[in-house]
Design a protein around this nucleic acid. Structure first.
Length: 1151
RNA sequence: AGUCUCGUAGCUCAGACGGUUAGAGCGCUACACUGAUAAUGUAGAGGUCCGCGGUUCAAUUCCGCGCGAGACUACCA
């Protein structure tokens, strides 16, 4: 017996299946059914979620997408590799811990030891991990949780070290200082990631001067020298939004191809007494109006006029004259005097204060000449390096060169003119002073020296520290780098081998990210992470990179000999023993490693570089480190058994995160891609399209969600709603719709099947009946089923689960439920257990079992239930779980596209008939005499096979198919077929189509008959063929007609007496059935029917059909009754024929 | 600020290598069906296919500009 249920309860199903999986060890078996028996394999790399908190809804999305394809490929007979992984290191975790402990970064190592701090971090991570594991199970994500990779594991760290060493050996790693975002207020460097946290870029007002840099004329190119007469001073005009960097200026950047001008201008000292002198300024000609705005300056075109001008008449405007225009290249290597000669360049003084070319220079704003201070701008730093421009540095007490601003954001104390010790931005002090204080003072100092052309206020977006809300500055900090720029081209070409979903992310965003790749700063000054395995002498003249624990122990032993270490702290580690217990004996985190002092070849002590490895390196190393490569599993990487991955999928934000670091490491070290297919998943937004955030209070707790709706409905909803890469507007109400619509219907089909199969004792014992026994409808649904299998398979392969879900949904709802099952109902209840009936059972069974398999990757619980309920009775398959079965294989011979089209056609016809009935207010229950279907001959022949079906659906006595309108009087309409005449007549299309639309009935008939019509337009002979027009029929006398592009139906609306009687009787019977239900009659109880005061006509009809009525309603007799009408049940067939009936159960009567 | 993606019914989304009636589900209204019934069907209302230009016989679809949304990038001085 098939199990029957009272109603659909998805949560109950989920619980049951969880229990089933547990009892039968299904998960374990799923990962076990391993290696040798499988020829094909499918590799997923799990992007390790950071264990810094609770999972959110967006994690639901990425987990189910990964799960779907793993399950799909399992069904397709692959061994699927899917190890879970967890990112246990990193800043977010540290910050959470600091918040929890109520400490700050600076307290670590002081108020709390690093050892203690790290142990708290580890504990924190453990707690988060528990939640994540529960979450993973609840959502039905099948991934190997038993042997995860965790980035803090000793084995994992060892692999990371090995990779770093390998990079180092290949000369990819170097130490340098780089300009990085730095927050003086928080006293910490920030990552670019932190800069992009919401709200960090704020619009701020900035005071920004146009500064005059005095040209040393001797160094000017001859071209320019020739155009400069007299002794006037010459200045480069440069604009800056950070005047506090001007004392550090050592170069000016121009664009070689940008146009510049020499402009002679009067420089006013004193407006009152008009003391002035002439000088020459240089800037980009494109920016004349920007540098010399019309409100303040005006151009004079005549040289003589300019020189003889009377300034007193100029009111407040200053005149200027353009001497000469030239390209930026003529400025190259010109020199100028140091603007503020307070400090000397640190080295190569001869290279300082010159003009160089910068590709970033533009003419959108400013002057086309950019002030460069190599210590406070990242572009400045890069270009300075290129041209070997020295920075301005001074030696501190320890003899280390430092920039002119200290770590607190103050000018160093040796500044002259009272600038020493002043904060460059007042935001860094607590005192309430003018925001632009230092900037203003610098400007006014320069103004006194006549070094300022003019000053303006400027609004721009400037990054702020997310912790302190204070502005950041760009500051030179020491870091370790990976020279990714060296392999830029390789990374770009390898990227072309990756399939990106959606394509544009890979083609455009990722590749342009690679184009602009910068060397990867992969060190972090933090505490909880993988320590850099690099030791250095104090002078930095010797360094060693450790690539394994073994190596480290050997080095330690050397060091012990020199007396730098007293003993080997890894004493209890057995070298070359790969057992987990051996590895669990040691810890490689910072608090341990910092105590290790090694010895250089010169016998000098070497200390570890105190920094940690960027967590993005940790996760990017995951293909190798998850296998403890190369210490174990060497072949899995080297022989490509488990590398590269077939599939990864994470949020779009990982494009420059994990997607990038995976790609970088694999490109550099393995000359390979790390993944073949990648889905970059869109964001999860709330139902209004707003980003979910805690502060807005619009987040959804995934645990509550799953508990309420069950994993299947959520999975189905998410996948159905939008394609994985599109943003998902998450509306919880939508989940109920899915449950009712899809799961409800599918459940209903099963319930229907189970009900009748049980009655008939169907359990698929009979042998498979051949298609010879199939009806047209059977052939159709089987064709549709096979088409469905084919399409689903295709969409799965193309990584489009949304299309899979939508096509399955359409099959289940529109085709299986609403058509096949509905039309087959009679077959199940009327017939005896005939071949025809068995066929129907077999087909319905096949549909259900195949749909279950097709949806199993997406709805793993419900499909399992369906499968077990079906298969446990029939025992047709021996699998313990649907997830161990094979993906349905399409039988192309059973696909009949023509039949599918035909059925669509039939559905259209019934819809049209219903529509006509509706218009004429004729119920479907009322039989009608005749339906005429007018369409082309080919279609007619095919439709004939489905005649009975149509007769039943439309409730007509007869259907006539025809391809001619011969016995109808009708009006036809003609319309041009633009597609055809457009290409034929081009610009005359409009004209001709107007003529066609005016054709009368005679011409239309002629066109139909001769398939051609010729007429003249403006003396030109024009031929129209049948294909050039669309002819539709509109109206027929005595019939009602509906037309469509392909066909016309005509319905005979005349209701004869006998038709009316039939309609009435059906209505009567139906009402009796309702009464039976109301009286709680069971299916076999007999009744008597009493009719109260019906008119004669009605009585006559009832008498006439008495036998039929009794048979249908299980009545023994129909009697008259003379009670009052109100006691009876009203049957209101038509207004004029109202009657009242009572029914009584036979039992009652006899008592 | 730049780059990319998107803008179709009240809501969620389809769709069209350019062709004249633009679709589905949900919601709403009315009706029907009643041996899957807390299901189901039919019909109706509801659209300048974001705006403006261009290419074309023909643009919601292709191109350009603008507006709006989102993401990414960014001290571009």
């Amino acid at each position: 017996m098939f199990i029957e249920y009272k109603k659909l309860d998805l949560n109950q199903v989920t619980k049951e299946i969880f229990q089933y999986w547990k009892n039968h060890d299904i998960l374990k078996k799923s990962f076990q059914c391993t290696t040798n028996s499988y020829k094909k394999k499918y590799i997923l790399y799990e992007g390790p979620p950071s264990l810094n908190g609770n999972p959110g809804v967006h994690h639901v999305v990425s987990r189910i997408i990964k799960d779907i394809f793993c399950r799909y490929y399992t069904l397709k007979g692959n061994k699927v590799f899917r190890k879970s992984g967890w990112d246990a290191h990193g800043l977010p975790i540290e910050l959470n811990v600091e918040k929890y402990m109520k400490i700050e970064k600076n307290d670590i190592g002081k108020k709390i030891s690093i050892k203690k701090y790290n142990s708290i971090c580890k504990k924190f991570v453990h707690n988060a991990l528990k939640k994540w594991i529960l979450f993973t199970k609840k959502i039905g994500y099948w991934i190997d949780l038993k042997s995860p990779y965790i980035t803090y594991n000793t084995k994992y760290i060892e692999s990371v070290w090995w990779l770093i060493k390998k990079l180092y050996d290949n000369k990819f790693i170097y130490k340098d200082y780089d300009i990085q975002p730095y927050s003086p207020a928080a006293n910490t460097g920030l990552s670019y990631h932190e800069l992009n946290m919401p709200g960090c870029y704020k619009k701020v007002e900035q005071i920004s001067p146009f500064v005059k840099f005095k040209v040393i004329k001797d160094y000017l190119s001859n071209k320019l020298k020739r155009n400069i007469f007299g002794n006037d001073d010459v200045f480069f005009i440069s604009w800056t939004t950070s005047p506090w960097t001007l004392p550090s200026n050592t170069a000016l950047a121009i664009g070689k191809n940008i146009d510049y001008v020499l402009v002679e201008i009067y420089s006013i000292y004193n407006i009152e007494n008009f003391s002035y002198k002439k000088e020459i300024i240089i800037f980009s000609s494109k920016l004349i109006d920007y540098v010399l705005p019309k409100e303040k300056y005006y151009q004079i075109f005549d040289k003589n006029e300019f020189y003889s001008i009377n300034l007193k008449r100029c009111k407040n405007k200053i005149p200027y004259y353009i001497i000469y225009q030239f390209k930026g290249i003529d400025l190259m290597y010109s020199k100028y005097e140091q603007l503020l000669p307070w400090f000397k360049p640190y080295y190569k003084k001869e290279n300082a204060f010159q003009v160089i070319d910068g590709s970033f220079v533009n003419t959108k704003e400013g002057s086309g000449i950019v002030h460069i201070s190599p210590t406070f701008g990242s572009e400045d730093f890069i270009i300075a390096k290129k041209y070997d421009i020295p920075p301005i540095l001074v030696l501190n007490k320890e003899g280390i060169p430092i920039p002119l601003v200290d770590m607190q954001g103050k000018y160093i104390s040796s500044f002259p003119h009272g600038f020493g010790g002043k904060y460059i931005k007042s935001d860094f002090t607590t005192s309430n002073v003018d925001k632009f204080l230092v900037d203003k003072e610098i400007i006014s100092f320069l103004e006194k020296k006549n070094k300022i052309l003019r000053v303006e206020k400027y609004f721009h977006f400037y990054p702020h520290c997310w912790r302190t809300d204070k502005p950041i500055i760009y500051y030179p900090l020491n870091s370790w780098f990976i020279k990714t720029t060296k392999v830029k081209n390789k990374m770009i070409s390898l990227n072309e081998k990756i399939n990106w979903y959606p394509n544009f992310i890979g083609k455009k965003r990722f590749s342009s990210w690679l184009e602009n790749t910068k060397n990867w700063n992969f060190s972090r000054s933090r505490y909880w992470g993988t320590p850099l395995p690099i030791w250095r002498t104090k002078k930095g003249d010797e360094e060693i990179v450790i690539g394994s624990i073994k190596e480290l122990i050997l080095e330690i032993k050397k060091s012990i000999k020199y007396g730098f270490m007293s003993h080997n702290i890894f004493d209890n580690f057995v070298i070359d023993d790969m057992s987990d217990t051996n590895y669990s004996n040691i810890d490689l985190h910072k608090h341990i490693l910092d105590e290790v002092i090694l010895v250089s070849s010169q016998g000098e002590p070497m200390n570890r570089e105190p920094d940690l490895v960027d967590v993005w390196f940790d996760s990017g190393a995951m293909p190798y480190a998850q296998l403890h490569y190369p210490f174990e599993n060497k072949d899995n990487i080297d022989k490509n058994f488990l590398f590269p991955a077939d599939f990864i999928a994470e949020g779009v934000d990982q494009t420059r995160g994990w997607f990038f670091t995976l790609h970088t490491i694999s490109s550099i070290l393995f000359n390979s891609i790390a993944y073949k297919n990648v889905i970059s998943i869109g964001l999860v937004l709330d139902k209004n399209g707003q980003k979910m955030s805690k502060s807005k209070g619009n987040t959804i707790n995934p645990f509550e969600l799953i508990d309420k709706y069950g994993p299947d409905a959520i999975r189905w909803y998410i996948i159905f709603n939008s394609e994985p890469w599109d943003n998902l507007k998450f509306n919880v109400d939508g989940i109920n719709v899915i449950i009712n619509k899809f799961f409800g219907t599918l459940y209903n089909i099963y319930a229907f099947f189970a009900l009748y199969a049980n009655i008939d004792g169907f359990s698929y014992k009979e042998k498979e009946l051949s298609t010879d026994n199939y009806t047209e409808l059977d052939l159709w649904i089987i064709s549709e089923l096979n088409s469905l299998i084919e399409k689903s398979d295709k969409y799965y392969i193309n990584y489009n689960p949304t299309k899979v879900v939508r096509v399955i949904s359409s099959f289940v709802l529109d085709k299986l439920s609403n058509w096949y099952v509905r039309l087959c109902r009679r077959r199940f209840w009327k017939d005896k257990y005939t071949v025809n009936k068995i066929v129907a059972y077999q087909i319905l069974y096949k549909c259900l079992i195949n749909v279950a398999k097709l949806i199993s990757p997406i709805a793993p619980f419900f499909s399992e239930k369906l499968y077990l309920d079906l298969n446990s009775v029939t025992k047709k398959e021996f699998f313990e779980s649907i997830h161990f079965t094979n993906f349905p294989i399409v039988d192309k011979h059973l696909i009949n596209k023509k039949l599918e089209d035909k059925m669509t056609f039939v559905q259209k016809i019934t819809t049209m008939v219903f529509s006509v009935r509706k218009k004429n207010k004729i119920k479907i229950r009322q039989p009608l005499k005749k339906l005429m279907i007018i369409t082309d001959k080919k279609m007619v022949d095919q439709l004939k096979k489905l005649e009975n079906l149509l007769i039943n659906e439309t409730n007509v006595k007869e259907i006539k198919f025809t391809n001619s309108y011969s016995n109808l009087e009708l009006v036809k309409h003609i319309k041009p077929n633009y597609k055809s005449i457009g290409s034929k007549f081009r610009e005359k299309t409009k004209e001709i189509s107007e003529i066609i639309e005016k054709f009368d009935q005679k011409i239309i008939k002629e066109i139909e008959r001769k398939k051609k019509y010729i007429f003249h337009n403006k003396g030109e002979k024009i031929s129209i063929f049948l294909d050039d027009v669309k002819i539709t029929t509109e109206f027929v006398k005595g019939w009602d007609i509906l037309s469509d592009n392909q066909l016309t139906i005509a319905l005979d609306l005349r209701i004869t007496n006998s038709l009316w009687e039939e309609g009435f009787i059906r209505e009567f019977i139906r009402n009796i059935q309702i009464l039976r239900k109301q009286n709680n009659c069971n299916v076999i109880e007999k009744i008597f029917i009493y009719i109260i005061n019906a008119n004669k006509n009605i009585q006559f009809v009832i008498e006439k059909y008495k036998n039929f009525i009794c048979q249908e309603t299980l009545a023994l007799d129909i009697k008259k009754d003379h009670q009052e009408k109100k006691n009876g049940y009203e049957i209101n067939f038509e207004k004029k024929y109202r009657l009242y009936v009572i029914i009584r159960k036979v039992k009652e009567e006899t008592i």
